[in-house]
């Protein structure tokens, strides 16, 4: 029993370490970049419209204790399958969207810098579609979802190593 719980906590511990590693490595400049790209000009007019609509729902999307606060999921290199560890997060978003049919979401697909730019634009779209398909399979109306690929054009971490690449291979739900 003891052993099992320890085994279970190892991945979390690793994740915590990894996360600590990530948050300590980027420079201040890169953190500014992160903030800019998640809520700034990059996400466009649709973000602001949706946020205004979201105001009356009481903002469960920002509750740090809710799985809805996780809006980014990560992918393996040149892959677009949603990994099982993100299914709970996406189911929570699907449930939220299905019960709030007036709320819309934009799913951004992104890639790391490896490989060619146009191919990555296509790959980013495939990642965004993979998330969109999962949401619609869970009962969300397709009309609530917009997808867009930025390929490798909007990295969140501008480093050139595996840590940066892992953070950049992502799909982001922008409400």
């Amino acid at each position: 029993m003891m052993k099992i719980s320890l085994m279970r906590s190892i991945p979390m511990l690793l994740a915590a370490l990894l996360f600590a590693g990530c948050s300590s490595t980027p420079t201040v400049e890169q953190e500014a970049q992160v903030a800019d790209h998640s809520v700034g000009a990059g996400t466009g007019a649709s973000t602001q419209g949706a946020a205004a609509q979201g105001a009356w729902t009481g903002n469960p999307l920002d509750d740090p204790n809710s799985p809805l606060s996780n809006k980014v999921i990560y992918f393996d290199f040149d892959r677009s399958e949603v990994k099982p560890e993100y299914l709970d997060t996406l189911r929570a978003h699907a449930e939220y969207l299905a019960s709030h049919p007036d709320v819309t979401v934009t799913i951004e697909g992104h890639c790391d810098e490896r490989g060619t730019r146009e191919y990555n634009l296509a790959l980013g779209e495939r990642r965004a579609n993979a998330v969109a398909n999962l949401l619609t399979a869970e009962g969300v109306a397709r009309s609530q979802i917009t997808t867009i690929s930025y390929g490798e054009e909007r990295p969140i971490d501008e480093g050139h190593d595996e840590t940066a690449w892992a953070l950049n291979r992502r799909a982001v739900l922008v409400y």
């Binding site: 000009a41 990059g42 730019r117 146009e118 634009l121 054009e153």
Partner: peptide, 9 residues
């Protein structure tokens, strides 16, 4: 051309 959004290809 210049833009705040990506230009490519």
């Amino acid at each position: 051309v210049s833009s705040k959004e990506p230009l490519m290809s």
